[in-house]
Simulated scan of single mutants.
Amino acid sequence: MRDIDLPLPLARAILNPIFRVTLNKRLPFTVQRRLLDVTSRAQLLPAGAVVRPVRLGGRPAERIDFADTSEHGAVLYLHGGGYAVGSVATHRSLAARLARDIGCAVYVLDYRLAPEHPFPAALDDAEAAFLELVATSGLRPDQIAVSGDSAGGGLSLALAQRLIARHGQTPAALGLIAPWADPNEIPERERDLVINRPWSRACAAAYLGDSDSADPAYAPLTGELRGLPPTYVQVDVSELLHRQCVALVAALREAGVHVRFTESKGLWHVAQLQAALAAPAAAALCELAEFLREAIQPADLRELG
């Protein structure tokens, strides 16, 4: 099936009841996960995408590529979902579009979810996955970008901090879609189109478990930002996380990190998931792909074929 371009007001009207039902504090996380996996079937894969199940760092994952995929780089993608929901299925379409537009393989990690596996399980899984990619792919750390959305964006930031501090390895770039970089922060408003405050607080508590909320690995916005690789941040001005993303960008720039920051108007939290349904969402995803492509495969390398 080909992509369609729904008017944004119509897309928002369709999505609003779906998110109100699925991301609901009253539903067990296991039910939310099943509902999200079912609704994600409407997120179409681009033609030619090849999806292969693999394992990374002891966890299930998917490698997504195309017939003309370059082996000169890769992306490790960490899905969003408040650390409690989301899966390789919910983010398969987004990852496939990144793989197509960047021109390299994208690996989507099925990291462990809270509350069954609270902090730092997800971070441990992401760390193990990145280290295995370096050890087995023939790629250097600076040829592997890390990308993620929402909680996966916060996890991507925490992963880069840990890789630098523990292993002296710096990824090629960070691609963050509306990153949840500080779960301690309580949203000012009750909800946006996708996220609501009671659900986000339940996710934050589930992820924290018995750990210390002051741990910068839990809230990487409060951690060491100096030395991070070039970073892309995108958020819509209507989102509950908009203020936090603005603060993150300011802190990154203060720390000397090269940042590209894009604020959209009229989209919604991680609208890139609906790139097959709305052209502005697809354009936002293409912008992220362009940033990561340049970081992984600089122009002089691409010209060599």
Rank of each mutant, 00 (worst) to 15 (best):
L267F: 01
Q272R: 02
E254P: 00
T262G: 00
R253D: 14
A281Y: 02
C245P: 03
W268H: 11
V246Q: 09
A250M: 12
Q272I: 01
A282Y: 07
A279E: 14
A278F: 06
A279Y: 07
E263W: 03
A276F: 11
L241W: 03
A282V: 01
A278R: 05
E263D: 05
A247W: 10
A281V: 10
L273I: 06
Q244H: 05
L252R: 15
A283G: 09
R253A: 15
A251V: 11
K265L: 10
L252G: 15
A283N: 06
V249N: 05
A282L: 07
P280H: 01
E254H: 15
C245D: 15
H242P: 01
L277G: 04
L240G: 10
K265N: 11
H242V: 13
A281S: 10
A279T: 12
A276V: 09
R253I: 07
L240D: 13
P280Q: 02
G266I: 04
L252F: 00
L248P: 04
R253W: 09
A278T: 12
V257H: 13
C245W: 01
A255D: 04
L252D: 15
V259Q: 06
A279L: 08
A251C: 07
V259G: 03
L240K: 12
A247K: 14
P280G: 01
V246D: 07
A247P: 01
R243G: 13
A251Q: 11
F261C: 00
V259L: 09
A271D: 11
E254V: 11
E254N: 09
V246W: 04
E263T: 12
L240F: 08
A251K: 07
R260D: 14
V257Y: 09
L240I: 05
A276K: 08
G266T: 02
C245M: 07
G256S: 08
A250P: 04
R243K: 11
P280E: 04
V259W: 05
L267N: 00
A282R: 12
V257Q: 08
